[in-house]
Simulated scan of single mutants.
Amino acid sequence: MSLRIGANPIGWSNDDLLEIGGDIPLETCLAEAREAGFVGMELGNKFPRTPDALKAALAPFDMACIGGWHSVELLERSAEEEFARAKPHRDLLKAMGTDVFIVAETSNAIHGRRDMPLSKRPIMQPDDWAAYGARMTDFAERLAAEGFRLCYHHHMGTIVQSEADINAFMAATTLPVNLLLDTGHATWGGADPAALAKRYRSRISHVHCKDVRPTVRTRVEAQDWSFLDAILGKGDDLGIYTVPGDGCVDYVAVFEALSGYSGWVVVEAEQDPNKANPLAYAKKGVAHLKAALHEAGLA
């Protein structure tokens, strides 16, 4: 697979607070995504969940289905139970011809709670990683047998947030568990995304590209905001996340560390569309990614 630039609809409609962007039709999201230069979309709450309907929604915009998020609860379930629970998602992705299976542990996550500051996020005990990693590896092997690549999404407000968490998770798992490198979550979580890219290059199978506004991050951390307040911004202020080229992430360094990468790079900037025009920001993100990919020798 060649390198392709796609998008997540989170810049148009929020999956954790459905009223954010709730008035924006799916057709508008897809038309603007295509105009911005994207050739694929990840799934969001407005997308049909049957193959025929999803193909019909994407076809007018010549847009591929990249894949989609699946919440796992392997802290509480066995790999066998989780695999059975994931059957509708597996069936949809298989019908759409994609092998990208994005997962994150959400059994005790707080990123969807606006009343919960990030300082209250769950922390794994050192002795618990081995058993959890074994269940995740078992789950990934079951997916691999059906042709899927498990792409684990480290995420603010979850058990895999910090650089130490990512390192512990990767040490506790083996292939076919892959890492979804998210430049925005890595940066906000205190890691250097380029260093993570270099360290785990052989196990990175999917990339989410968003940027971080450092002045907002300083305020968010000093005042201990919730994840949702941070990404949406309070009052008229913009949130912590934005598109590539509008923050502090060095994308040339990230892509240089990903030398030889083949797959999707996905713009995923969670913002309030009433504050950050989705089309304008999408165009800015695509232009910056193309320039950085070219400079890094990946395009």
Score class of each variant (00 low, 15 high):
His206Thr: 02
Val212Leu: 12
Leu180Phe: 07
Leu30Asn: 06
Glu221Asn: 10
Asp15Leu: 04
Gly190Ile: 01
Leu143Met: 09
Ala257Cys: 03
Arg142Asp: 04
Phe83Arg: 00
Ala276Trp: 07
Ala64Gln: 15
Gly297Asn: 01
Glu35Thr: 10
Gly11Lys: 02
Cys65Val: 00
Thr137Cys: 02
Gly190Asp: 05
Thr183Tyr: 06
Gln223Asp: 09
Glu27Ile: 10
Leu92Thr: 00
Leu54His: 05
Arg149Gln: 11
Asp165Gln: 13
Val286Cys: 05
His70Ile: 06
His294Pro: 00
Gly157Trp: 15
Arg149Ala: 05
Ala171Met: 06
Pro122Arg: 15
Gly239Asp: 03
Leu58Ile: 07
Arg217Cys: 04
Lys120Thr: 07
Lys87Leu: 14
Tyr132Cys: 04
Leu150Thr: 08
Asn14Cys: 13
His154Pro: 15
Asp23Cys: 00
Gly233Val: 00
Glu27Gln: 15
Asn14Tyr: 08
Gly239Gln: 03
Ala7Phe: 15
His208Ala: 02
Thr218Ala: 15
Asp246Val: 04
Asn108His: 14
Ile10Asp: 08
Arg217Pro: 01
Gln223Phe: 02
Phe148Met: 11
Asp250Met: 01
Ala130Lys: 07
Ile231Leu: 09
Asn14Val: 06
Thr187Ser: 13
Phe255His: 01
Asp246Trp: 11
Thr158Leu: 10
Glu32His: 12
Leu26Glu: 11
Leu232Pro: 12
Ala287Gln: 10
Leu93Phe: 14
Arg85Met: 06
Thr187Lys: 12
Ser226His: 11
Phe148Gln: 12
Glu163Ser: 05
Leu279Val: 09
Gly133His: 14
Arg203Met: 02
Val39Asn: 02
Leu54Ile: 03
Ile123Gly: 03
Ser2His: 14
Ala79Arg: 04
Ala164Val: 13
Glu80Gly: 08
